[in-house]
């Protein structure tokens, strides 16, 4: 053990790790928001609630059907993604021609409904979810102790983020997506079913949120309000990074998580607000956001 700036290395790297973990969730969620916004022109306010649904789906699967973490990691995002598809078909598809704000208001209403139902059915206290056996314990790296589960979360979310970037920027499917974002009418004329792409995009974005929720379950307690506070921070992340670039969303998410973690070491009182302060500074210096194009 050694000291950096008078801070024991254990504390410093410990917070850095927590920062990276938070950053993983910021990255996954802002990525989902960016993908959805790109196709639907809607800011998905219920993203936080859908993240919470993912965590609850994992919790309920374990409690009632004994399905553990690994099946939940696949099934929960699928289930929540399907609810997303239903939401898009039932509600969102009627809003594309209207002002953006109506999409925000509708998804805000959905978030209230989801959170309200969760509170009624499960209470507002946090429920614990155990770390899967395979990922118990940790590694002693000399300068810090690295729990296996946390290492897994960082690796998994990085992988998902990069895979999403790859699909959108480097594959044929991604090319359709990007083309449909630019000019839906022309893409339809080529015989591509754009409404279906839009529906599936929403489902995919929502599934990403649920995936993040399942991964978050063993780290934070599973509680109905776990999403609503997170989503506001993620909005700030999105304002900082701009939604124009997928890679931008990922980098900003991880970066801000680390900054937040470091703030916890050096100036703990500001750790809740540092991301908002950075947002204010970015707005002053670079109004379009770090990776944004001027609208």
């Amino acid at each position: 053990m050694f000291e950096i700036f008078g801070i024991p290395s254990n504390a410093l790297f410990g917070q850095l790790l927590i920062g990276l973990i938070n950053g993983s969730f910021y990255a996954l969620l802002s990525l989902g928001l960016a993908v959805i916004f790109g196709m639907l022109n809607i800011i998905n306010f219920s993203h936080g609630a859908q993240y919470m649904m993912g965590a609850f789906a994992a919790y309920l699967m374990l409690k009632y059907s004994g399905l553990g973490y690994w099946p939940a990691l696949i099934i929960a995002p699928l289930l929540v993604g399907i609810t997303g598809v239903i939401v898009e078909r039932l509600f969102l598809q009627w809003l594309y021609k209207l002002d953006h704000l109506y999409g925000l208001l509708l998804t805000f209403g959905l978030a209230l409904i989801i959170e309200g139902v969760a509170r009624n059915q499960l209470g507002s206290a946090g429920l614990p979810y155990v770390v899967p056996d395979e990922l118990r314990g940790g590694q002693n790296l000399g300068f810090m102790f690295l729990p296996n589960y946390r290492a897994w979360v960082i690796v998994a979310s990085l992988t998902i983020c990069i895979a999403t970037w790859f699909i959108i920027e480097r594959t044929r499917l991604g090319a359709y997506l990007r083309a449909a974002t630019e000019n839906p009418a022309l893409v339809r004329a080529f015989g591509i079913n754009v409404p279906r792409i839009i529906t599936l995009t929403y489902g995919f974005g929502v599934a990403l949120a649920a995936f993040a929720g399942v991964m978050a379950a063993p780290i934070y307690n599973v509680s109905p309000q776990m999403g609503s506070e997170l989503i506001i921070v993620v909005f700030a992340v999105v304002v900082i990074g701009g939604m124009g670039s997928i890679l931008g969303a990922i980098v900003t998410g991880f970066g801000l998580g680390v900054v937040e973690g470091l703030t916890k070491v050096f100036f703990p009182e500001a750790s809740n607000t540092v991301i908002f302060v950075i947002m204010a500074i970015v707005l002053l210096v670079r109004p379009a956001g770090l990776f944004g194009r001027r609208a």
């Binding site: 916004f37 925000l104 921070v233 700030a236 999105v238 809740n272 707005l283």
Partner: peptide, 28 residues
């Protein structure tokens, strides 16, 4: 003066984020 630097949907997110920041100040 911060929020009007961005339009539309960003405006809503900025005002929400700033309000949340001041909520934490009120909490502390």
């Amino acid at each position: 003066s911060l929020a009007i630097r961005r339009q539309g949907i960003y405006f809503a997110m900025i005002t929400l984020a700033l309000a949340q920041m001041m909520f934490f100040f009120a909490l502390q």
